[in-house]
Simulated assay, not measured.
Amino acid sequence: MKETLIKYIPEKAIPLVEYLINKHKVHLKIVNQRQTKHGDFRRLPNGQMQITVNNNLNPYQFLLTLIHEIAHHVTYTKFGKVQPHGKEWKTVFQHLMLPFLQPEIYPKTILPFLANYLKNPKASTDADAKLSLALREGKAESGKSFIFEIPNGSTFQFKNTLYKRGNKRRTRYECLNLSNKQVYLFNQNAEVILVTS
């Protein structure tokens, strides 16, 4: 397990993660990138519990996603069927993440945002714009830009569809889908391909 984990998470986190995987009998599967989620927890038809995590995440995102999914596993084992991101899961997730909140594992540029997020964790880390940006170390994927970086009125591509960037609401941007003329709200850290500015 260590040989696999060293490719995906910070080295200092490996003993803690190995302990959790063994203690909770986690079946971890590392999968290709999915557009809609970083990780997943499910009970397979044979009764086995499986956690999947995307292989394209950086070590800090990967570790947070893995612990998020282990928290689902532990919550399910302890409480049965409860709200996926309800109070039981939040408590378990906070408890599991606490030992990882140290500068040997997470850099000081991420720690304050992570600590703040863990006060009331959401279903997705991407819902916390500041944490999401810190986890990506302030850089969009090569060839892409964050939506907040592109000019208002510019055209961009997202999932093979063209949009025109509009005004910012509180935390999201209104963007006009140029095919169906509907307005969609985009997270400010959505990664898009700029077409014309």
Results as ranks from 00 to 15, higher is better:
N56A: 10
L135P: 10
R169E: 14
L101P: 04
P107G: 09
A71Y: 06
F113G: 08
L118N: 02
K87H: 13
T4W: 06
R42G: 14
D128Q: 08
P15I: 05
L111V: 03
L176P: 02
S145F: 14
K159G: 01
E137L: 13
A115M: 10
F93E: 02
Q50F: 00
F41Y: 15
K144R: 14
K139Q: 15
P15D: 05
K108A: 11
H27G: 07
S124V: 06
H27P: 04
H85Y: 08
L64A: 11
H95M: 13
Y163T: 00
T77M: 11
G47A: 01
H72N: 02
Q61P: 06
T171H: 12
K181E: 02
L20G: 05
Q182G: 04
K122A: 12
L176F: 04
L44K: 15
N187W: 08
Y184D: 02
H68L: 03
Y8M: 02
R34Y: 11
L131R: 10
P15W: 05
L131A: 11
G166Y: 11
A71K: 06
R136K: 15
L118V: 00
N160S: 14
E69R: 00
G143T: 06
K29H: 11
K164V: 09
T4D: 09
L64Q: 13
K87G: 03
L98A: 14
N120Y: 09
F113C: 09
I70A: 02
L98K: 15
I105N: 01
D128N: 14
G80V: 12
L133F: 14
Y163M: 02
V192N: 10
H24F: 15
P112N: 08
I193P: 01
I21W: 08
F93M: 07
N56H: 15
V82D: 01
A123R: 12
N32A: 13
V192Y: 07
P121I: 03
I105L: 04
L176G: 04
V31P: 04
S132T: 13
N177Y: 02
K29C: 02
N177A: 04
F156Y: 14
F158S: 06
R165D: 02
A127F: 10
F148I: 11
E3I: 09
Q94V: 02
R42P: 07
I67R: 08
G86S: 04
Q182I: 06
S179W: 02
K168T: 11
K12W: 05
E104C: 05
I51M: 00
H27T: 13
N116G: 09
Q182H: 11
